[in-house]
Amino acid sequence: MINITKFIINDLIKNWILLLYTALLLLATLGFFLLEGQGDKAILGVLNLTLLLVPMITVIFSTIYYYNMYEFLILLMAQPLRRRSILGSLFLGLVVSFGLAILAGLGLPLWLLHPGGVSLVLIVVALLLTFIFIGLALFVAVWLKDKARGMGMALFLWVYFVLIFDGLVLLMMYNFSDYPIGKIVLFITFLNPVDLGRIMVLMQTEAAALMGYSGAVFRQFFSEWRGMLASLLIMLAWSLCPAWLSLRMFRVKDL
């Protein structure tokens, strides 16, 4: 497993799209700090970019990568290897490569320009979102054999988590605004890692007070270390579940 992972990482870190992605993250992060100064505003800019770009690039790239590697996966599968270890290697390879891209493009400049809790949380959230969307990409790619449909599904997932989900939540809140929905909203955020990640970072900024405005439940949960830990665990579950499901699916998949 380690050998295939190493091989895939070796392939990916020479991939020009991944290099471009890293450069883009780096430039954008530096740009925000140059334009907005040191404070929360630059962090918010980087956060916005992260929430939009990281899931998109990660999910689309990983889906394409799976389809491009399909024949190679078959070749590997013809070797005396377990299926689990082959897809696991692909997942790990993507996780490590994209993780490195995040650390180099986002983590390094953030930590140099604005060391502290909020940067740390932002980097961790970016990493977790990366893992989550790699998992989702593999899930889609293993599920749908047809490349075009798979790509469509990957894009849809991105739009869903970044836009549609929030729209539905807003609609729901509009219709149930007369009810005490504070607690429900808290649970709803668990259903979308992008929202959860955004709130985890926002809670470390001045915007926290504004969020707290919406009700004690929310603020209490996220400002306590236990809430933070719970959010982290939920994000971790989000990164492992799709990957685990795709492994299960892959085990009995006809290739």
């Binding site: 918010l44 956060l47 916005n48 929430l51 939009l52 970044v162 836009l163 929030d166 729209g167 939540v169 807003l170 809140m173 509009y174 605004s177 929905i181 504070g182 909203v185 709803i188 955020t189 992008v194 929202d195 955004r198 709130i199 926002l202 915007a207 504004l210 969020m211 405005y213 919406s214 009700g215 929310f218």
Partner: peptide, 20 residues
């Protein structure tokens, strides 16, 4: 304005949907 009416909507602060 939305959050003023529906405080819970604050959870969407800085989301892409809201910005758009």
């Amino acid at each position: 304005l939305i959050t003023d009416k529906i405080p819970a909507a604050n959870m969407l602060l800085y989301s892409f949907l809201v910005n758009a």
